[in-house]
Computed example of a mutant assay.
Amino acid sequence: MIKLYSYYFETLLFKFSFGPEQGADTPAWAEEAPFPPLAPRAAIAASSEALAEMLADYPCAEPSFDACALKRSGPNGWWYYHVSWMVWPPECDGGDRSEIHLPVMLNGQVPPYQVFDFENRFEAWSD
């Protein structure tokens, strides 16, 4: 099981957990294949849709894409994209901003996530 954590300013903590049950191992990226089964642009698009859903109830300026990295993790070496977005407060004065990271599995899905209030963030690491 892979667990990733991402903060939204100092207000919320998003916890992503994924493994074979969520499709982390399919499709596999064959060792002889030069490219992964999911194109980076498809991963960015999937993360953009998920980010809009995640932040629908929170005020923010339009997020801007920052980075997309292909990572390998977990005991079985599952590949996934680690997509980063910069999110500014609604006034968008160039000041305080938050970088939100979303995993996208090679099946094109952003795994389920849990949301923790900042005050309860330690619960995210309890399991």
Results as ranks from 00 to 15, higher is better:
54 M>V: 08
2 I>L: 13
108 G>R: 09
80 Y>S: 05
116 F>L: 07
59 P>N: 05
93 D>E: 14
63 P>I: 04
13 L>V: 02
51 L>K: 05
56 A>R: 14
69 A>Q: 13
46 A>D: 03
75 P>T: 02
28 A>N: 03
37 P>K: 06
97 R>K: 08
27 P>V: 00
52 A>K: 14
57 D>Q: 15
45 A>Y: 03
78 W>Q: 10
17 S>V: 15
24 A>G: 01
69 A>S: 10
53 E>T: 14
15 K>G: 02
106 L>H: 04
68 C>P: 01
127 D>Q: 06
15 K>P: 04
68 C>H: 08
46 A>P: 09
65 F>M: 06
40 P>I: 06
13 L>D: 00
103 P>L: 09
125 W>Y: 15
126 S>I: 06
81 Y>C: 03
88 W>Q: 09
16 F>G: 00
68 C>K: 02
96 D>S: 10
64 S>I: 14
41 R>A: 14
82 H>P: 00
40 P>W: 07
67 A>S: 15
6 S>E: 02
67 A>V: 01
88 W>R: 10
17 S>Y: 00
47 S>I: 01
17 S>P: 00
100 I>H: 08
123 E>H: 03
63 P>M: 04
87 V>P: 12
28 A>S: 12
31 E>T: 13
94 G>Y: 07
118 F>N: 13
109 Q>C: 12
7 Y>C: 10
33 A>W: 06
106 L>E: 04
47 S>Y: 02
55 L>G: 07
48 S>K: 15
116 F>I: 09
74 G>M: 04
63 P>C: 07
114 Q>N: 08
29 W>D: 03
72 R>Y: 04
39 A>L: 10
65 F>Q: 07
19 G>D: 07
97 R>I: 01
72 R>V: 15
86 M>Q: 13
35 F>N: 10
21 E>N: 09
32 E>H: 11
103 P>M: 07
92 C>V: 00
48 S>E: 15
79 W>H: 12
94 G>A: 07
95 G>H: 06
80 Y>C: 05
38 L>R: 08
89 P>R: 12
3 K>S: 12
115 V>D: 00
19 G>V: 00
43 A>C: 04
113 Y>W: 15
3 K>E: 11
91 E>W: 14
69 A>M: 09
31 E>V: 12
47 S>M: 03
58 Y>S: 12
24 A>N: 01
97 R>H: 15
102 L>Q: 03
127 D>E: 11
122 F>D: 14
62 E>P: 14
115 V>K: 10
97 R>S: 15
62 E>Y: 02
75 P>Y: 09
70 L>V: 03
98 S>M: 06
98 S>T: 11
36 P>N: 02
8 Y>P: 01
10 E>H: 11
73 S>I: 00
116 F>C: 04
114 Q>A: 13
14 F>L: 10
88 W>Y: 11
99 E>Y: 12
8 Y>I: 03
19 G>S: 05
5 Y>L: 08
17 S>A: 13
11 T>R: 08
53 E>D: 13
94 G>K: 05
91 E>C: 08
5 Y>A: 01
116 F>D: 05
111 P>L: 06
102 L>E: 04
51 L>A: 06
100 I>N: 08
60 C>V: 00
56 A>F: 05
96 D>K: 07
99 E>W: 11
32 E>F: 12
8 Y>L: 14
48 S>Q: 15
116 F>N: 03
52 A>H: 11
53 E>Q: 14
